[in-house]
Design a protein around this nucleic acid. Structure first.
Length: 432
DNA sequence: TCTGGGGTCCTAGGACCC
DNA sequence: TCTGGGGTCCTAGGACCC
């Protein structure tokens, strides 16, 4: 059995926990640069604000008392830590699925699981001010579904039977009762069914979660995919998706942002990309990985008229590294190579790919006896510790001058190590 | 004027090899 | 004069999640 615990309107709830005057009021949290709505309190949903809706479309609702807030991701992160540490009491192992959701294995947990979940839910609400819903069932997909029922029954009277509000345990229901709940749920609400597949399913007459659960997995595999087949099996009670209590290291790391105002010149872009690369390198070191490839991209807004421009470029690193300066240098290098002036750029980003374990890297370095590189690695660790303690950006790697960067890069090419296989002059410029 | 920022997995098709 | 077939690896793109 699995439990899925999910905080209600998480970012909006965090803000209300910090400022109790917001409780019960219509509140929306906006994305970076106040671009669009990324979280809504119940009262703001009732006013018709949609998830992801641009701020300028709903701004007029301020006059009706709707409060718009810029995001405070540091706050949400620490609130998440507190909620999760309390949720961990549900069972022997837990997977943090997102900032506001966790799957908990209930394997070996005895006694009344519904009662236990209600007690823990109440504790989380009392100690953090965050309200959660809990779904309990045989598989992850069914526990997601149970969680959906728990939340809807709580806030939309009449949607599902009242007794399932806040905590819904499918494990104690009869098969007929579970099917009744599935039949009352649109197919697109099922975890793993998105907009596209949802449309196709409806076109084929599969309207509810029960319709989907009654399909033959083999046919689903042929008609759609193995992914949807797994979803069907999970809805039928066959567990196909395991709990990942020790999350695998990320296979790629991205830092990307939309700009508050369009950017047309290369220098501000270099500054932005340097910041992204630096943040990405920090994330990389946090999971003790090194990257083999730096991917940098920039593009104009897809929503605005005017000439479109979108490019990206992959820069292979001489050797896998987690060094901020080397990664930043590669990203800026790539940016300068692909940049063309005269476009209103709306977004840019840096992605680190070909990630591998730092331990593996250490072995290679020991073989090479490259002391300066090991010292740099220690320097990076010290920098991360300082920045964790005194706040992000306390200590940064100073950007080298443009000419210096080009020269340094070219010099390295000339005396490149055997690990380096690609000549940057041959890197194709990808056009998107 | 103004439209988020991350991630994952799967598949199809091309390149390459024997 | 002749132009296969199967396996593997890689990449791009699509679909999904929050």
């Amino acid at each position: 059995m699995y439990a899925l615990l999910d905080a209600n309107n998480f970012y909006a709830s965090c803000e209300a926990a910090l400022r109790p005057s917001l409780i019960g009021r219509p509140v929306c949290v906006l994305s970076n640069n106040d671009g669009c709505v990324i979280a809504r309190s119940e009262a703001s949903k009732a006013m018709g604000v949609k998830m992801g809706q641009p701020y300028f479309e709903v701004r007029h609702l301020e006059a009706e008392g709707l409060v718009f807030l810029s995001p405070n991701f540091t706050l949400y992160g620490s609130m998440s830590d507190r909620v999760m540490s309390l949720a961990a009491a549900l069972g022997p192992s837990m997977e943090r699925y997102s900032i506001d959701e966790a799957f908990v294995s209930l394997h070996g947990v005895r006694g009344d699981q519904t009662k236990r979940a209600r007690a823990i839910r109440a504790r989380i609400l009392q100690w953090t001010g965050i309200a959660c819903g809990v779904g309990i069932a045989q598989t992850k997909t069914l526990s997601k579904f149970a969680n959906h029922v728990a939340k809807q029954a709580d806030r939309k009277p009449g949607s599902y039977p009242r007794e399932h509000a806040q905590v819904c345990n499918l494990g104690v229901l009869s098969r007929a009762d579970v099917e009744e709940l599935l039949a009352a749920t649109e197919v697109a609400e099922v975890w793993g069914v998105g907009r596209r597949i949802g449309e196709q399913l409806r076109a084929d007459g599969v309207m509810t979660a029960l319709d989907l659960a009654r399909l033959d997995p083999a046919i689903v595999r042929r008609r759609w995919s193995v992914v949807l087949e797994r979803t069907v099996r999970e809805l039928q009670g066959e567990s196909c998706i395991e709990l990942e209590d020790a999350p695998p290291a990320k296979r790629e790391i991205a830092v990307t942002r939309s700009f508050g105002h369009p950017v047309t010149d290369v220098e501000p872009l270099v500054e932005a990309v340097s910041t992204f690369a630096s943040r990405a390198a920090e994330k990389l070191r946090k999971q003790s990985s090194v990257a083999g490839l730096v991917h940098v991209f920039a593009h104009t807004s897809p929503f605005r008229p005017g000439p479109r421009w979108a490019r990206s470029l992959s820069v292979p690193l001489r050797r896998p590294t987690a060094d901020t300066a080397e990664i930043t240098e590669a990203a800026v290098m790539g940016l300068r190579l692909m940049f063309e002036p005269g476009y209103m750029l709306a977004k840019a980003g840096v992605m680190l790919c070909d990630l591998s374990s730092e331990l593996h890297q250490q072995c290679e370095l020991d073989l090479e006896v490259e002391a300066p590189v090991r010292d740099r690695s220690k320097l990076m660790k010290a920098m991360d510790q300082l920045n964790t303690r005194y706040g992000r950006g306390t200590l940064q790697v100073a950007a080298m001058g443009q000419q210096n960067q080009l020269q340094a890069w070219q010099m390295r090419q000339e005396r490149r190590t055997p690990h380096y296989t690609t000549d940057w002059r041959q890197i194709p410029i990808a056009r998107a």
